[in-house]
């Protein structure tokens, strides 16, 4: 079982992001997804910078994938996508425009978690178009995964989101800007002040969601450490860990140790894994 580090979901200052990926080069991860997937306005690192980061990680022995935007609205978003699709790196396509560009150019690609691959027929078609790996939608259940694995095209790798705040929804509206009564077009890049997003609580003070610009995440960490033997049995090739501004190295090492049988799963009482069991996502079922 390989471990991947998913694309960075938050907006960190340039130097912090570069320092983070310098550290990633020495972490026991096999695959690293880089690039901006959440908001086209974020620009601390531009494509050229991401390509530098990617090259360094590749030289450190990592397989590097360039992730692309989940919500592509404007012509400038499309231009950025077209440029990303001409680099030497494998692309993670997170919407169908990117799939089209890759398929037309006969480029292999990763079918990202927002492509809504719930059934084997869709997976087969993506394989025909050039996908060599697919990522299970985070809301999918183990039962759905089993059905997909049974119909998976030969040579297609399967990746499962296994740790981190769940990316639950995407909007045109920026909820971080909204908190400050700002419009998205003049957002003052407020999300750079929230390296782990903003907590959204119920009026009873219960942690519920996390605001991250146009993306809404769970407040709880999704954690499939306890389910790793099930993932192995199900033929999953890669488990994805979502990067955090603190503690990512320890988390990666912990996953590696659990996979190698050298440590017991560490699951906190406020983690969640309900989606895997077909329950509300915020529930925690003990494996």
């Amino acid at each position: 079982m390989k471990i991947s580090l998913g694309p960075p979901l938050y907006y960190w200052p340039r130097q912090q992001m570069l320092d983070f990926y310098a550290e990633v080069a020495a972490m026991p991860v096999d695959v690293v997804y880089v690039g901006e997937t959440v908001c086209s306005r974020r620009h601390e690192l531009r494509l050229e910078d991401w390509l530098d980061v990617a090259a360094k990680l590749r030289d450190a022995g990592k397989e590097v994938v360039l992730s692309t935007l989940t919500l592509i609205e404007s012509e400038s978003d499309l231009k950025a996508l077209r440029r990303a699709a001409t680099t030497e790196f494998l692309i993670e396509a997170n919407e169908m425009g990117a799939v089209r560009l890759c398929a037309d150019a006969k480029r292999k690609f990763v079918a990202g978690p927002t492509l809504n691959v719930f059934g084997p027929e869709t997976l087969r078609l993506l394989g025909d178009m050039g996908a060599t790996r697919w990522v299970l939608p985070p809301e999918a259940t183990r039962e759905m995964l089993a059905g997909l694995q049974a119909g998976r095209p030969a040579g297609m790798e399967t990746e499962v989101f296994a740790h981190g705040r769940l990316p639950l929804a995407y909007s045109a509206r920026c909820f971080t800007a909204r908190r400050f009564n700002l419009q998205k077009d003049s957002c003052e890049f407020k999300c750079i002040d929230y390296p782990a997003g903003m907590d959204l609580k119920t009026r009873e003070g219960e942690a519920f969601l996390t605001i991250n610009g146009v993306q809404t995440q769970s407040a709880k960490n999704y954690n499939l450490q306890g389910e790793l033997p099930q993932l192995v049995a199900d033929g999953v090739d890669i488990v994805r860990i979502s990067p955090e501004h603190a503690g990512t190295r320890a988390l990666v090492e912990q996953f590696r140790a659990v996979l190698d049988g050298a440590a017991a799963p560490a699951v906190a009482s406020d983690d969640c894994n309900g989606f895997w069991y077909g329950k509300p996502g915020l529930e925690l079922i003990r494996a």
Binding site: T70, L71, T114, N116, F118, P137, P138, E139, M144, L166, L168, A169, Y170, S171, A172, R173, F208, L209, T216, S218, G274, F275, G278, K279, P280, G281, L282
Partner: peptide, 21 residues
């Protein structure tokens, strides 16, 4: 709908009932 349709699992997260599925 404020969220991109087809890209929202908020209801699935809170209630287990998914618009997508």
């Amino acid at each position: 709908c404020v969220m991109v349709e087809g890209r929202c699992a908020l209801s699935a997260y809170a209630t287990g009932t998914s618009p997508n599925c």
